[in-house]
Design a protein around this nucleic acid. Structure first.
Length: 241
DNA sequence: ATATGTTTAACGGACC
DNA sequence: GGTCCGTTAAACATAT
């Protein structure tokens, strides 16, 4: 067995682990921990309330973005917990930024973020929504609408859910960092792609997905069918929806 | 009007 | 028993 075979086998193993349905069950982490993770994953280590909501809901669909109960708890926690400090008002988003009090930083080991999500490659390679970049988010309301649209799609199995999560990340990343396509393009592609999310078989590990592979140049897009394994290991730059 | 933020209250579980 | 912690609900204020 060659080195590359070993490497691939190991990665497959990791991938299968990522299918553990942790994100559908009630997280064992406290709200404070979830808030801290949401903050720590951002490049600037500060988040607005809505970013915190979104991050938690993205990673733990148990917390529906349309439910207000847990969001009330989040707000309560931010106010009551001395680990969190409110800093300057966001210039482009609603509300203030929230940070972790530096002296409390050690209470929230960042390594748990990757362990928790079992999505190491996404965490490490995907540029997540970052308040620092907010000035490039010209239209956050539309972005949230896209997210809701996709989130509402019924997923037949966990693999679909994972892909869905990946899509959300990529949409945001595309929207916040490159901003090189119009909102209409994103919406169209996201819609068409999410409509394809339901076609997988019930066999989790053999589900195939279609996604649009778009060359960086303006050439025409083409669809390609990939396995979840291929999908998760496709470099972000080759993604489009 | 709705989102954001503060505060109080109640409850259950863990722990001593 | 008592306390601490985390959660949930809710009233209320403020900002947009």
């Amino acid at each position: 067995m060659s080195n590359s075979d070993v490497s691939e086998e190991e990665t497959r193993k990791d991938y299968s682990i990522s299918l553990i349905p942790i994100s559908h069950t009630k997280p064992t982490h406290s709200f404070a921990t979830l808030i801290a993770f949401a903050i720590l994953q951002s490049k600037s280590k500060k988040c607005t309330l809505s970013h915190i909501y979104q991050w938690i809901s993205d990673h733990f669909p148990y917390y529906d973005i349309n439910d207000s109960g847990w969001q009330n708890s989040i707000r309560h926690n931010l106010s009551i917990n001395p680990s969190f400090i409110k800093c300057e008002k966001s210039k482009y988003c609603k509300g203030h930024f929230w940070q972790i009090k530096p002296s409390h930083r050690s209470l929230f080991p960042v390594e748990d973020v990757t362990e928790m999500t079992s999505f190491k490659e996404v965490i490490l390679e995907t540029q997540k929504p970052d308040c620092e970049m907010e000035k490039k988010v010209g239209n956050e309301r539309e972005l949230n609408n896209i997210s809701k649209k996709i989130t509402k799609k019924k997923c037949r199995n966990l693999a679909n859910k994972q892909v869905e999560s990946r899509l959300l990340y990529n949409i945001r990343n595309r929207y916040t960092s490159s901003f090189n396509s119009t909102f209409e393009e994103i919406e169209y592609n996201a819609t068409s792609s999410s409509s394809q999310l339901g076609i997988g078989t019930s066999e989790e590990n053999s589900v195939e997905y279609n996604f649009v592979e778009r060359p960086s140049s303006k050439g025409s897009s083409r669809t390609r069918s990939v396995t979840p394994f291929q999908l998760f290991n496709t470099p972000k730059k080759n993604w489009s929806f």
